[in-house]
Nucleic acid binder design. Structure first.
Lengths: 220, 220
DNA sequence: GCCTACAGTGAACACTGTTAACCGTTAACA
DNA sequence: TGTTAACGGTTAACAGTGTTCACTGTAGGC
């Protein structure tokens, strides 16, 4: 779809607000209302673009993952790959992950294409962590340390996490929240005040998280 | 300034895009151009509002901090206080922290009021962590573990961190990035797929981070 | 030759931030 | 006391936005 690639071109050139219907149409020598033959609204257009971006990122990570020798290295690879992709495509990343405060209970169980693509993206990390665990179960915090409320919530997601126990799900979640938060902060410029090049900091953090998952120290 | 409180009312009611010049003006029985007597542009208005919000949040955290018996408890208090404030004011929090991708080298060393207010906000955490360290220096990772590049960057910020060594600055940064990332993910709905109530998870994470800073386990 | 679906157009509506020209009140000052 | 300037507000207008409507060709199927 050339219309989405036109939208993306405008996105990388001028950020999310540059994706205007007339601007996109102009890019294709078209009239603005013509786009309504293909998308129900402006939101639908950017949502479809976001879905595409998720799929592209997912494919990139899968390809990168499959170059890893073992599961542990694969986990390091996709973590670094996510950061690299985000830094190489800050506008796209901002559009995908930086849309805050989705009004509560937006669409119940969102099944919009972009949300589904986001789930496929997340599954790459979830599946790999689960594989790592079942291949060599990493030591996880005992239930007493997490507290009964948290354990109950985690066990509720046990089937989704391939039957992992609460403590292991907790560590998987920690892996994800730390990785995600770190990359968002770096890409969104929330780390500039402390570090001008967050690469070394990211690597150190990744080593920490990897250790918690029982992985060998860093590759390379 | 009643004009900013009108803008805030619209913000909490309809999110950031609801802050329109005409909407704000209507709230005060005014005409839209009248607002230009007080703010140079729409951006200036929301920027001033953001500065106010930072100051309000900072004051709230300081007041909360001063109810803590010792420095360690104070650190737990402001961490939880930040989360509570964010959850209680998601629209405000989204406006303050969820504006992604500030175009590179926006205003060099930004000295806009909102940026200054953000620095005062961050200082609350930085100062307290430094006090905690100098009262009872927590064990920090050796330089060899962090790598020379990262150590060099961290030592560059040593004066800003009250003379703390690289390893201690690293742990302080870890405290902040984990706390910040965690809260952003929760209030921006990025944790719903895994936890419907992230409170217990937040507490567990906070205990982890506190342990790394040599603090006693949780209060209460 | 009809008919339907497709793909596109220009005009228009309601909205946005912003600017210009204008007006009344108020206060300072020679 | 009369003049001047600033303050705080107005209406009208401009360019831009997403969106809808009515319309026009143009292709293919029966």
């Amino acid at each position: 779809m050339e219309i989405k690639s036109a939208a993306r071109k405008l996105l990388v050139e001028g950020g999310a607000p540059a994706i205007g219907l007339r601007a996109v149409a102009r890019e294709l020598n078209l009239s603005a209302p013509a786009l309504y033959r293909y998308f129900a609204s402006h939101d639908d257009l950017v949502s479809a673009l976001v879905a595409d971006l998720y799929d592209e990122l997912t494919a990139f990570l899968i390809e990168l993952r499959d170059t890893g020798a073992d599961l542990g290295e694969q986990l390091f690879l996709i973590a670094g790959g996510l950061r690299d992709w985000a830094l190489a495509h800050p506008a796209e990343f901002g559009l995908m992950f930086g849309s805050p405060v989705p009004d509560p209970e937006a669409v119940e169980h969102e099944l919009t294409p972009s949300h589904q693509a986001a789930m496929r993206f997340g599954a790459v990390f979830k599946d790999l962590v689960a594989q790592v665990y079942w291949q060599r179960p990493f030591p996880s915090p005992p239930d007493a340390e997490l507290g009964p409320e948290l354990v109950a919530q985690l066990e509720q997601k046990s089937e989704f996490f391939d039957g992992m126990p609460a403590g292991a799900i907790y560590l998987s979640l920690t892996y994800w929240t730390r990785l995600y938060g770190l990359i968002c902060m770096e890409v969104f410029g929330q780390l500039h005040w402390a570090l001008e090049d967050a690469g070394a900091y990211f690597d150190a953090q990744l080593r920490e998280i990897g250790q918690a998952l029982g992985l060998d120290c860093p590759p390379g």
